[in-house]
Nucleic acid binder design. Structure first.
Lengths: 226, 226
DNA sequence: GGTGTCATGTGAACGCGCGCACAAGCGCGT
DNA sequence: ACGCGCTTGTGCGCGCGTTCACATGACACC
């Protein structure tokens, strides 16, 4: 086992692939909790999350969520443990930059609030949009971004601008003190080292699907089935 | 898992990681083409895409897009080559299931059409939504999904329903002959082996960001060594 | 026409992540 | 009390992906 420098309680570096699966586990666990289930095995959780059971066990071993041999894991304990690791235990208000079609949809998306990410405010560069009320929140101008972040304690920024404005939007967010950014604009943005950006590109996802489909139809050797 | 037995011209299996980068390259190349640039080096393209230059070269080596030593790659050639690999050369109409906030935003998203994915139609299970016109298209009931796919030749399905309805929506799409699905619902869905599903979960992305932020603030290594 | 400069293309090594398979351990029934 | 069955926890091997480093080769300039 490659043991990193330290093994302190609470801040071992969890592998990125594991972190990406934790939210999926959490969703399944919350469903189980709603259904009144109190314990779950790695196999059960694996099916719920669509991954391998050994993978689940290894993932959970990175947390302090030990299970009971012969029984399984306690659902409630796992929920609180994963929630703690992912969110630090408290909600992270989100600022959305760019109130176009996508920005409006995101501001109304229930999953954010449910997942501990309430909408702290909306910002747009277009004067025609500023001042309008969207999803119960008044859209504010870009130059109020810093004060908005300060007031609400927002820690996450969502960029939902056109591609051409994405880099500028990110710049504003960074200047306002935001260090976690979710970028929906189809544009590679540059950020300082201490800022974390995740890219969500809808068209890219479709193009990846397109590759596989194109591959299945043209390079299809299963045509004559052998 | 497809059989990597064959190595014919035109359908070598391109590594998944490479496929995921090709759309990013394509975006950068289109910008260059717009700017009138005719050739680009692997270093230039790497900066544009935010990846390593050697990675770019290896990625492009999987395509039939050979460059010229000492000069670089021809932008136009790369564009057509990547487009061909990703889309098969022709547009793939998209059917959107679920016309809630997200579905409406997606139906109006310009990037889809620009990327070769025109909206073929909208479908919803809610009778109150069916018949309404969204983004210039009339929402149709779920039971017309199969005929809609047949009429429009749609090849891709987007699921933008609540989580509880996602599995059913996927079932309808599969039954209608769709083999490429982009699922925005926060739910793991089961599909037959010949169907390809990509998951885009907004809340999950935020939670991953939350982990890193939580880690930076609590397990701050800049504190004291040892 | 020769030479220098530059960029491609690729061989090899490193690291990460995944999955198998097994040992360790807990609980329950007898 | 004891053994049996179930499940966790993990060591190990394999494959993918990334990156460095270098040889190959084309173009431009003189």
């Amino acid at each position: 086992m490659t043991e990193p420098t330290r093994d302190r309680t609470g801040d071992e570096p969890i592998p990125e692939a594991t972190v990406a699966r934790l939210p999926v586990y959490l969703r399944g666990l919350l469903e189980l909790a709603d259904a009144g289930v109190e314990t779950v095995s790695s196999v059960g959780l694996a099916e719920l999350a669509g991954v391998n059971a050994a993978n689940v066990r290894k993932d959970l071993s990175y947390l302090h969520a030990h299970g009971t041999r012969g029984v399984g894991y306690e659902v409630g304990h796992l929920v609180s443990e994963i929630s703690l690791v992912l969110g630090g235990g408290r909600p992270s208000p989100v600022v959305i930059v760019g109130v176009g079609n996508l920005g409006r949809a995101l501001s109304r998306y229930d999953g954010f609030v449910a997942g501990g990410f309430p909408i702290a405010g909306l910002v747009d560069a277009d004067p025609a949009v500023v001042g309008r009320k969207v999803a119960g929140t008044v859209v504010r101008p870009v130059d109020e971004l810093a004060s908005l972040v300060a007031e609400t304690g927002a820690t996450v920024g969502i960029v939902a601008t056109p591609a051409a404005a994405a880099q500028e939007a990110v710049g504003h967010l960074v200047a306002a003190g935001i260090r976690s950014i979710l970028n929906f604009a189809p544009s590679v943005v540059a950020v300082p080292a201490h800022v974390d950006v995740r890219q969500v590109d809808l068209a890219t996802e479709l193009q990846i699907l397109g590759y596989h489909q194109h591959r299945r139809t043209t390079g299809d050797t299963s045509r004559a089935a052998g």
